[in-house]
C-alpha cells in the first residue's frame, strides 16, 4: 500500500465535525472508507464534484464523515436518489455506499433497474452478511445455515450472489473483494469511478460484534484472517482444482464491458427531440 500522508485523510474527512464515528470496534466499514478515500485522493478529482449517497444501515452512515456533497437517504433508496442527482448533473461523480440489506433486500429493485439502464453510478456494497444496525437479523446474503437473531435455528434461505445479480441485470463493471484486501479495494473503487457506466463493487466485510458473535467466528482479527485465507483471486480459479475453489470468496473484476451509458443516451435523446421541433 503506498503511503498516503495523514493530511490527505484529514482533508477528506469531516474530522472537526462528526467524530468519533458510530462503528463498533473491529468493524470493517472504516477500513473500506480508508480505501475509498485513498482511491479518490489519487484521482485528481475535486471534492465539489463528488456526491456520496447512502441508504440506511451501518455502512450507510459513511457519508456523514466525508467532506463531499453527501446524502444519507431512506432504507433501500440510495440508488434512486443517486439516479436523480446524476441525471440532473451528469458531470458529478456519484458514489453510492450501501449494505447487503439496503442494496439486495429493500433496495433490490432499484439496483437491478439502475444496472439495466447502465447509469454511471459507482455502487459500493459493504456485505457483512447481516443487519448490523438493528442488532443482527438475517439478510439476503446471510449464508445458508448461519445464525442470526431472526434465524435462531439457522438460515434456511440460500444467500444472494449480488455480483451475479448485477451482471444479469446489465451492470457493466462488477467486482468483488474483501475489507482485508485494502489495496485491491482501492484499485477497484478507482476503476469503478472511472468506468463510464453502472459499476458495482461487493466488499465482503466483517461484523465481529454481531455476526461474528452469533456464528462463533472469533474476534475481528480471526475474521480478517478468514477473509485472507478463504478468498482467492479470480485469476487463480482456473489453475486450482475444483475442490480448492469450492466455498471460497472469488475476488477480482468479475465482469467488465462497455455499452451506452444512460445519461449519454439521454443527451442524444434530447438532441433528437430538439431537432424534431419546438414545443406544442
Amino acid at each position: 500500500m503506498p503511503a498516503i500522508p495523514q493530511k490527505i485523510i484529514h482533508e477528506y474527512l469531516r474530522h472537526d465535525k462528526k467524530f468519533p464515528h458510530v462503528w463498533c470496534a473491529g468493524c470493517s466499514n472504516g477500513i473500506v472508507l480508508g480505501s475509498i478515500i485513498r482511491a479518490i485522493a489519487g484521482m485528481n478529482l475535486s471534492r465539489n464534484d463528488i456526491v456520496m449517497v447512502s441508504g440506511i444501515g451501518c455502512s450507510s452512515r459513511m457519508p456523514v464523515y466525508v467532506d463531499f456533497n453527501t446524502l444519507h437517504t431512506l432504507h433501500g433508496r440510495a440508488i434512486a436518489f443517486a439516479t436523480g442527482i446524476k441525471l440532473h448533473k451528469p458531470h458529478l461523480k456519484v458514489i453510492v455506499v450501501t449494505g447487503d440489506g439496503d442494496c439486495a433486500a429493500i433496495g433490490g429493485n432499484h439496483l437491478i433497474h439502475a444496472a439495466r439502464r447502465n447509469i454511471d453510478l459507482s455502487v459500493i456494497m459493504l456485505n457483512n452478511n447481516i443487519y448490523g444496525m438493528t442488532g443482527g437479523q438475517v439478510s439476503p446474503t446471510t449464508p445458508y445455515e448461519a445464525y442470526a437473531t431472526t434465524a435462531p435455528y439457522g438460515n434456511i434461505e440460500p444467500d444472494f450472489d449480488v455480483c451475479k445479480l448485477a451482471i444479469g441485470a446489465g451492470a457493466t463493471y462488477v467486482a468483488r473483494t474483501t475489507a482485508f484486501h485494502t489495496q485491491e479495494t482501492q484499485n477497484m473503487v478507482k476503476e469503478a469511478i472511472e468506468h463510464p457506466g453502472f459499476a458495482l463493487i461487493e466488499v465482503i466485510c466483517a461484523c465481529p460484534v454481531i455476526y461474528g458473535r452469533l456464528n462463533k467466528k472469533g474476534g475481528a482479527p480471526e475474521m480478517m484472517k478468514e477473509m485472507r485465507d478463504n478468498s482467492i483471486p479470480l485469476s487463480a480459479v482456473d489453475k486450482l482444482p475444483p475442490e480448492k475453489v469450492q466455498g471460497k470468496i472469488i475476488r477480482g473484476v468479475l465482469h467488465k464491458d462497455i455499452r451506452p451509458e444512460y445519461c449519454a443516451q439521454y443527451a442524444e435523446l434530447m438532441k433528437k427531440a430538439q431537432a424534431q421541433g419546438g414545443s406544442k
Binding site: F81, I85, H88, N109, M270, G277
Partner: peptide, 26 residues
C-alpha cells in the same frame, strides 16, 4: 427533452419520489 429537461420513468413510485428529491438536491 425538447426544453433540456429530464424525464425518467422509474421502476416504481418509491424510486420516483426519491429521484425527484435527488434531482432537486442537485
Amino acid at each position: 427533452p425538447k426544453r433540456g429537461g429530464v424525464f425518467v420513468q422509474m421502476e416504481d413510485e418509491l424510486g420516483s419520489i426519491c429521484a425527484i428529491i435527488g434531482a432537486s438536491l442537485a
